[in-house]
Computed example of a mutant assay.
Amino acid sequence: MPTARVIRVHAFGPPEAMQLDRVELAPPAEGEVLLRQTAMGFNFIDIYQRRGTYPLPSGTGLGHEAAGVIEAVGAGVNGFAPGDRVAYMNAGLGAYADYRNVPAAKLVRVPDSISDEQAAAVIFKGMTAQYLVRHTHAVKPGDTVLVHAAAGGVGQILCSWAKALGAYVIGTAGSPEKCELARRIGCDVAIDYRNGDWVKAVRDATGGRGVRVVYDAVGKDTFLGSLDSAQQFGLVVLYGAASGPAPAIEPELLNKKGCLFLTRPSVFPHNADPDTFRANAKDLFDAVTAGHVKVEIGARFALADVAQAHIAAEARATTGAIVLLP
């Protein structure tokens, strides 16, 4: 069996707290496959976990998604064989590795139309977008939606997919360059939230009415403005906290802001069993193949340089997805 190179956190802290360990892998257990990982995804939750915002046991690996090629299968594995190209998310922490044993129930096949890098870049972020536009609110033609962090990994997918579904899409981003990217991937209007009153700009873009749905992954810095951006009976979807946790509010505020609906969903319950996960992943991969979801990889880092990837992400110095390569 191979000796795996694995990134682990032995103490919470700055990016330098991550260490590259070498681990002797056991043969895949029953229900597992040995995966040679060709590309690994990055998500902002990785930073929260590295910092200790979401505490982990000492020595835990990081990373939620990767793509690669099956090298061997354990007993009881059906439907997969050595040589198959697959991807996963939510297979337990530890995706930052070049080899890994993964439960077969967590795998989905990668179609020939999608590269390993694309699969690693899109599987977690794309599955997040999938439940947001298909389940949390089934986006339909004529909807107006607001997407915060529109130039980010999930934001880009949300914008392009919502546009393909017929929505009028407004995106916010933190610079003119990111706003230009947001327009390029599907936003009808892109607003630089660092330049002026972005809530007023959203209202102006909707004739004063506000949007049907707000997708907010930023949290603290945008949440109250998100409530002010929604139309009467609108929905505010708080699905992340890139700037910190959203402030607590009294339920009565939702009434005062226009009888709003507020939800705090998560990707994992929406993909809790293998059949549901694979059906949702097929929906995502079909959307990518059709060009409805556009995946822009903004930066690539070697696994050994993962600290640089975290530094760049924390500085908001990248646009689009970050991919780690073995």
Score class of each variant (00 low, 15 high):
V211D: 01
T222A: 06
G210Y: 07
I249W: 09
P245F: 06
S226V: 01
S229K: 08
A149L: 12
I185H: 06
R264G: 04
N195M: 11
P265K: 10
R194V: 12
D188F: 09
G207L: 07
P141M: 15
R194K: 15
D197Q: 11
P176C: 05
D197R: 13
G152L: 04
R212G: 02
E180L: 09
G153E: 02
Y193W: 14
G244L: 11
K220S: 13
R184K: 14
V214P: 00
L181N: 08
L181C: 09
G208M: 05
G142Q: 14
E177Y: 11
T172D: 03
T263H: 06
C187A: 13
R209H: 11
C187N: 07
D188I: 14
A164N: 04
F261G: 13
D228T: 00
A205S: 10
V267T: 10
E252D: 14
W198F: 04
D204V: 02
P245G: 11
F233A: 02
F223R: 09
R212I: 08
G196C: 12
Y239K: 03
L238H: 03
A217N: 03
A242G: 07
K220C: 04
C187L: 07
V169S: 01
Q232A: 05
A205H: 02
G166F: 11
I191M: 11
V213L: 10
R183A: 11
C179F: 03
Y193T: 06
S229A: 12
A248D: 15
V218D: 06
E252Y: 15
L260Y: 00
C259Y: 10
R264P: 10
A217R: 04
R184I: 05
A248K: 15
D228W: 00
R183V: 13
T263I: 09
V213S: 08
A217L: 14
V214E: 00
I170T: 00
L224P: 07
D188Y: 07
E252C: 15
V236K: 00
I191G: 05
V218E: 12
K178N: 07
V147Q: 08
F223G: 05
V202G: 02
A150W: 10
A164H: 13
I170Q: 06
R184H: 15
C159T: 13
A151S: 12
I249H: 02
L253R: 15
Q231C: 04
G258T: 08
V218S: 03
V237S: 02
N255M: 15
R184G: 12
C259K: 14
A149Q: 05
W198H: 05
G155V: 01
W198T: 04
I170L: 13
A151G: 06
G174S: 15
A201H: 03
L165T: 10
V202S: 01
A217D: 01
L158Q: 03
F233T: 00
A167V: 08
R212M: 09
V189G: 02
I185R: 10
V213W: 06
R194H: 14
I249K: 04
A217T: 10
A248M: 15
R209C: 07
F261V: 01
V147W: 02
G225Y: 00
G219V: 03
K257Y: 03
L165H: 05
